[in-house]
Amino acid sequence: MSNTDHQGDVWEVFIQSKPGLPHKHAGSVHATDKEMALQNARDMYTRRQEGTCIWVVPLQAIVSSMPEDSESFFEPSDDKIYRHPTHYIMPEGAKNI
C-alpha cells in the first residue's frame, strides 16, 4: 500500500447503516483530500441506501495490533472468568437476576 501512488492516499471507510448502530468497516477508497475521500466513499459504498453516516480515515492514521502480539494482547483475559456473569453462583429461587 504505497502512498506514493499517483491515485492519492488510501482512506479506510466506515459506514453506519442505521442511526443507533456502530460504524462498521466497509472497505477503502483512494483520494487526495478529505472531501474527495468522503465523496468517493459515498459513490462506492452507499449506492443502495446502505448508510446514514460515513467516516473516512487515512490509512496512515490507523494503529493496528499485530498478529505476532496477539498472545500478549488477548490471551491474559482467558483466565479471568470472573469477568463473566456466569461465574457467580446465585441462591436457589432468586428471580430476575
Binding site: 500500500m1 501512488d5 499517483h6 491515485q7 488510501v10 477503502s28 477508497v29 483512494h30 462506492m44
Partner: peptide
C-alpha cells in the same frame, strides 16, 4: 474498485 482495494492489501500499489 472493491477488488483493487482488496488486492492492494497484499502489498502492491494501484499504480
Amino acid at each position: 474498485q472493491y477488488l483493487y482495494s482488496a488486492a492492494e492489501t497484499l502489498g502492491k500499489s494501484r499504480d
